[in-house]
Write a protein that binds this DNA or RNA. Structure first.
Lengths: 139, 139
DNA sequence: CGCCCTCTATAGTAAAATAGTAGTTTCTTT
DNA sequence: AAAGAAACTACTATTTTACTATAGAGGGCG
């Protein structure tokens, strides 16, 4: 039930680019430094994001990446699907008995709903509501 | 974003026991055979379920496991938490920026809601609605 | 032109998680 | 006593994760 660093760092890249949207390309070196991540590792995440048409690359000095579309038209689900594969809590669901099948599909739909209604604009601008004091992260 | 075989097979055990609730103990050998799974592997899942007070064991010939409570009072979340750990799409969420933190918490709450409102009785009896023809399993 | 910056592509790798298998022991019923 | 079944411990092959490393190609600037 986990999203790996691929999806997490991928979101980090995309949010970073969204914040700087309209200001020319941002290099991975910059994003890596700002977020204290491995530049080489981020490169491996940028490739599929580019192939999926979510970002565009500009090579050479003063190059980097820019968003391929407006932040409001890219949602978290797009990014997660590219880097983590299809959204589903289990694979081989076809073979399971109907009761469990229905459970997995309800979970999938619930997660999908959250991811597909959260845009990069939301993530870059609103910065979310701060959780109240004493909020439980793990349940 | 996956639930492993621990959670899946754990649910299989529990649903099996729920279906036979009130009819005396069921051996893992039986459950393993019916569901074509490894008996030894199921043993490793039964242990934590017993320690968590979800099932009771009866040793010796004609022994096995029974539910420790009524099927309506055990939900899928109880089982998944015991076998997969806390429900959360990412760990170390405390360190993330607020926008992402909020996203992970919304996902967690969505999944938690599904799991905690699905009881063993639901899973054992109603058998769920069959998905319509051509339903997409992966999204 | 030559150098540096940046993306592109491929390969390798240590650590952890997953999904088991195997063997022995203890308990209980017949 | 024999057999059925849980309990406990240890081992292992495979896959995934999360990187690191290396070499190359495109582009901008002095």
């Amino acid at each position: 039930m986990k999203i790996s660093t691929k999806g997490r760092y991928g979101l980090t890249i995309m949010i970073d680019l969204a914040k700087k949207h309209g200001n020319g390309p941002t290099s991975l070196k910059n994003i890596a430094r700002e977020n204290d991540l491995s530049e080489h590792y981020l490169e491996q995440l940028a490739s599929p994001l580019r192939n999926a048409g979510l970002i565009k690359s500009i090579r050479g000095a003063y190059g980097g990446y820019i968003l391929a579309k407006e932040p409001a038209t890219i949602n978290a689900g797009d990014i997660i699907r590219v880097l983590e594969g299809p959204i589903t809590p289990v694979e081989g669901i076809e073979d399971e008995e109907p009761a469990k099948q229905a459970l997995w599909m309800r979970i999938r739909d619930a997660v999908k709903d959250v991811l597909d209604t959260t845009t990069l604009e939301d993530l870059a601008n609103h910065n979310g509501e701060q959780p109240e004091e004493g909020y439980m992260f793990y349940i």
